[in-house]
Design a protein around this nucleic acid. Structure first.
Length: 430
RNA sequence: GGAGAGAUGGCCGAGCGGCUGAAGGCGGCGGUUUGCUAAACCGUUAUACGCCCUAAAGCGUAUCGAGGGUUCGAAUCCCUCUCUCUCCGCCA
C-alpha cells in the first residue's frame, strides 16, 4: 500500500509511477479529494468530541455528580447528535480511500527501465554465451519420460493438467536440489524456517496478494484459508504488527515450500512439461531491512540466487524488469533466467524484488532506529533461491548426454548420492 | 468434536463505572555515585491519526484481543466474534 502522506505531498510522483507501469493515474485526484473531505469531517467530529469530553469531565469533578449530570444532559445530548451528523461520512470515506489505495501498485524505483512489455526488460549481465550443442538437444519432458523420472500422464490421472509425478532419481534429485539450496542459504546467513503453507485472508492481504490476486489462489472456503502461492507470504508476514529492534536488522529468512497457483491467466502457456504447474516447489529468500539499505540488499539477494546457478554451472542471465513488468508489490525486480538448451531459450528461474515499504505498511512491520526514535517501516525483499522444478528442468536439459542420460552437476552429487541418471536398460536395447 | 480458563503497555502483572494512557515490577534510555564493571539511587520510557506548522513543542481524538450495546461517563457492566491455554476424545 502506498503512503497516503506521500500521495498528498507529491501526487505527481505517484501519478508518474502509475503511468510508467501502463496504468491510469486518475486515482490520484480522486484520493486527494476524498482525503480532503475526510480530514475536514475528522476535524469537526474530533472538536465536538473534545467539547463533550469537557462536559463529562465537569461531571466527574462536581461535588454532586448526579445533579451535574442532570444539568448537563441536554447539552451533551445535543453534542451527541452533532457528532453523529459530523461523523456520518467518515467510514465510507475511509473505506473508499483504502479500497482505491489497496489496488494501487508500489511506487517504481527511478532505476527501473521504461518499457511496455517483457521484451523491454534490460540485460544486466550474463554468464557468457550458452555453449553450442554437440548433438540435438531434447526438451526436459522428453528426457524425463525416457529416463522414467517424470510422469505426466499419471499426474493428469490423479489431478488433471499442470501436475507432475517425479519418480526415482527424479524425485531424489529434486530433493537434493532443495537440500543444496537450503545449505547454501544457511551458509549465507539466512535463517531456515518451515512456515505454514495455508494462511489466513488477513495474512494474504498483509503481503499484497489480496484483493487483486484472489483468482490466482487455491483456497478453502470453510476455513477461509489460502494455500500459499509462494513462501514469500508467510516469511514476509512473520513479523506482522511488530516493532523490531534495529540490532535485529537485517533479518534474512529462507524457506522451502510447495507453492500453489491456479495459473488462470496462463491458459495455453507452457502446457507441456513442468515449467508451469499448479503445484511447484521453491526455496524462498526474504529480507527485512531498514529503508536506506534495501537496494543494497536487493543486489545481495540477487547475488545469492545467482551464486546457486553459477555453482550448478548453468548458463543464465540477469534481467532488470521494465516498468510494465515489475509486479504489484515491487519497486524494482531482477529476474534470473536460466538457459534451456532443449527450448533454446532463457526462462525465468528466480525473481528478486525490493518491495520497499509497500508490504511493510500493509503488514505494519516496523523497527526503531534507537530506543527513543519513532518506529519506521522496514523494507521487505524477496527472491527465489531458486525455483526447484525449473532448476530440475535446467539440470536435465543442460546436463543431457548424447545417449539420453543425464549427468548430475558436481555441486549436487553430495546431496543426491549419485552421479548420473541413466536410460533404463530395456529402452537402451531398442 | 466435548468441557473449562483466559486475552491489559517491550515483557510480567494490578485495576470499587468517574482526570486511568492505565498502579507496581522487570527491561530500555538519561543521570548521580564508581579506578572499571556490577550494585544502589534519581529521572524517564506506548501507538496512530488530526490540528498547528520549516521544525520542535503544544493541543485534540482514538486505542486495555476485535466488533457492537448500556451510560453524562466503560479497561471495568452486557452481547457477538476471534485467538490462546488446560482437560477429554480422535489422529499423521
Amino acid at each position: 500500500m502506498l503512503d497516503l502522506t506521500l500521495l498528498r505531498r507529491d501526487p505527481e510522483r505517484v501519478r508518474r509511477s502509475a503511468t510508467r507501469r501502463g496504468g491510469d493515474g486518475a486515482f490520484v485526484d480522486r484520493v486527494l479529494e476524498l482525503d480532503t473531505r475526510l480530514r475536514s469531517a475528522l476535524t469537526e467530529s474530533e472538536q465536538l468530541k473534545a467539547a463533550k469530553n469537557g462536559l463529562t469531565a465537569q461531571i466527574s469533578k462536581a461535588p454532586d455528580r448526579a445533579a451535574k449530570a442532570q444539568e448537563l444532559r441536554p447539552q451533551i445530548q445535543s453534542i451527541d447528535n452533532s457528532i453523529v451528523e459530523a461523523s456520518a461520512a467518515i467510514p465510507a470515506l475511509e473505506r473508499e480511500i483504502e479500497e482505491i489505495l489497496a489496488d494501487v501498485p508500489n511506487l517504481l524505483d527511478d532505476s527501473v527501465p521504461d518499457g511496455t512489455a517483457e521484451t523491454d526488460n534490460v540485460l544486466v549481465r550474463d554468464s557468457g554465451p550458452p555453449p553450442e550443442p554437440a548433438f540435438p538437444q531434447l526438451q526436459h519432458w522428453e528426457l524425463g519420460e525416457r529416463l522414467g523420472i517424470l510422469d505426466f500422464e499419471r499426474a493428469a490421472k490423479l489431478s488433471g493438467s499442470r501436475f507432475t509425478v517425479l519418480r526415482g532419481k527424479g524425485a531424489r534429485l529434486s530433493r537434493a536440489i532443495v537440500d543444496f539450496f537450503l545449505a547454501r542459504a544457511g551458509e549465507r546467513g539466512y535463517l531456515e524456517v518451515v512456515p505454514p503453507y495455508l494462511v489466513t485472508r488477513s495474512t494474504m492481504w498483509a503481503t499484497g496478494q489480496l484483493s487483486k490476486f484472489a483468482d490466482a489462489m487455491f483456497r478453502d472456503e470453510d476455513a477461509d484459508l489460502f494455500m500459499i502461492p509462494t513462501a514469500e507470504v508467510p516469511l514476509t508476514a512473520l513479523h506482522r504488527d511488530e516493532i523490531l529492534d534495529t540490532t535485529q536488522l537485517p533479518l534474512q529468512y529462507a524457506a522451502y515450500s510447495p507453492c500453489f497457483r491456479k495459473e488462470a491467466g496462463a491458459a495455453g502457456k507452457d502446457t507441456r512439461g513442468l515449467i508451469r504447474q499448479h503445484q511447484f516447489e521453491k526455496v524462498e529468500l526474504v529480507w527485512l531491512t531498514e529503508a536506506a539499505r534495501s537496494f543494497e540488499a536487493l543486489e545481495r539477494l540477487t547475488g545469492d540466487a545467482e551464486a546457486l546457478l553459477r555453482e550448478l554451472q548453468l548458463p543464465y542471465r540477469v534481467m532488470a524488469l521494465c516498468a510494465a513488468d515489475v509486479g504489484f508489490n515491487a519497486a524494482k525486480t531482477y529476474d534470473l533466467e536460466v538457459w534451456l538448451p532443449g527450448q533454446a531459450a532463457y526462462r525465468e528461474i528466480s525473481s528478486c524484488s525490493n518491495c520497499t515499504d509497500f508490504q511493510a505498511r500493509r503488514s505494519q512491520i516496523r523497527f526503531r532506529r534507537d530506543p527513543k526514535a519513532k518506529p519506521e517501516l522496514v523494507h521487505t525483499l524477496n527472491g527465489s533461491g531458486l525455483a526447484v522444478g525449473r532448476t530440475l528442468i535446467a539440470v536435465l536439459e543442460n546436463y543431457q548426454q548424447a545417449d539420453g542420460s543425464v549427468r548430475v552437476p558436481a555441486a549436487l552429487v553430495p546431496f543426491a548420492g549419485f552421479e548420473t541418471i541413466d536410460v533404463p536398460e530395456p529402452r537402451r536395447r531398442t
